[in-house]
Design a protein around this nucleic acid. Structure first.
Lengths: 241, 241
DNA sequence: GAGTTTTGATGTCTGCACACATCGGCGTCA
DNA sequence: TGACGCCGATGTGTGCAGACATCAAAACTC
């Protein structure tokens, strides 16, 4: 349990802002938050400072703490992502993550084939084969675990820390699929082999094959998920000049 | 100037941590920081809370404030990116951003062709032609400005808030190229036309052409920049299990 | 309407009590 | 004698309460 008071205050306010309960433009006073959350001023202030750094609120003297519109939120912060996944915008968040992942993974596969350290390549191949076996045998939980590990290793092997950081979020989209009932008991036969192909391409340093294999996996993943979020409204962030 | 004491404390500690002056594992005491920065506890505490949320430090009772290794830093936070760009790792940061951009922009172009609102499509075409003119006439500052606007509009038009958020960082990589002396007085003739092609493909909703055109631009950009950072060491983030 | 004063919120500082992880002394047991 | 574990001492962050400083919005004056 993250039982620190300020962490709970962040959680409370963060979820309420992102859920829309506290809409953009809504102004709060520090004193009012003290009463509401039954904590002292320092706790509120520290929480507000963190929310400020996430782009969720801004503070103005003589006005108070103002909630900022979604276009100001930092969409890459893992807390923001978590809060959005718990909100009505869950579908839109999953789509954004899936699109990002589909864009990044082929590039990461290509880089991994060029740069990944040898032990990581070996592990990647092992995991791919283990994954194929688990898929054949219908061991769904083990398959999901290996799937996450496979893609984590791939992103990590790219040697790009931004790609690698997407691991955590990718895990969310993969586990999110099971929640949406999108995981069949027996994973697609072709996809299992494609993972092995990607791992071996990376292992032997074949960048083009690694990218193509990864693109194949991503294309299939996207087409399978696409129809679940067609109804999700898209948010267009205005260009700041 | 953002002259708030707490902001300055964040800036001071953030730059020193990311520059390596305060190495991973280094432990500081809140009281010691008060003396050093000549500010009160509340300022230090609020600053530390923000740095904690960025993954730069962790606090432990009876120990103090411990600096975390780079693998724990949030690589998508704009402050972290800015601090890295100002450090010795500037080259590695630019490479990471360029790789991310190269992965994302073709996907964004494809999505923009499918989803962008009509006014944005028109503006994109206008900017592309203006860019071509500025390039022909050797108006370098205006060209750079239009270039940033073009790519911002493209990312924004994708309707994916994560893609759109990369705008600010992309501007950094583009202006960073000029600093590195990578911008010729007269931009590449083909690239100018490619931008127009992408804009028109998006404008008429031709997703495949938009993606291909964007890929062409990105391939050229990457090959042109690649040799500037070959000597930059890559950082492999271990997979957390 | 321009300039000035008032006002009310955040910003900053300080002293105190508390929680709790670490350390070290002590005793127990093998 | 040495290893181990209990347990209190200690020092740190955490949380609280109250004060004053600062500064920009709002009200006021001319």
């Amino acid at each position: 349990m993250t039982s620190s008071l300020h962490q709970r205050a962040i959680e409370n306010l963060g979820t309420r802002i992102i859920s829309g309960e506290l809409p953009a433009g809504h102004v709060m006073l520090a004193e009012q938050l003290e009463d509401e959350l039954k904590v002292s001023r320092s706790v509120i202030r520290e929480a507000v400072r963190v929310l400020q750094s996430l782009g969720l609120v801004e503070t103005t003297k003589r006005v108070g703490i103002r909630v900022l519109p979604p276009s100001r939120w930092n969409p890459f912060d893992s807390q923001v992502i978590r809060w959005r996944l718990a909100s009505d915008a869950r579908g839109a968040q999953l789509r954004s993550l899936a699109e990002l992942r589909a864009a990044v993974e082929p590039a990461a596969a290509e880089l991994a084939a060029q740069n990944a350290p040898a032990p990581l390549r070996l592990e990647l191949v092992d995991v791919a084969y283990a994954m194929r076996d688990a898929g054949h045998n219908g061991e769904v939980p083990r398959f999901l675990e290996l799937d996450i590990q496979f893609h984590s290793l791939l992103l990590s092997g790219s040697g790009n820390e931004m790609f690698a950081n997407l691991m955590g979020q990718v895990a969310e989209t993969l586990t999110g699929r099971t929640v949406h009932g999108l995981m069949p008991d027996h994973p697609h036969e072709g996809a299992l082999q494609w993972h092995v192909d990607v791992a071996e391409a990376i292992s032997r340093g074949d960048a083009a094959a690694a990218r193509e294999g990864s693109e194949r996996i991503m294309r299939r993943t996207m087409t399978r998920m696409a129809d679940t979020w067609t109804e999700q409204p898209r948010v267009f962030i205005p260009v700041r000049r």
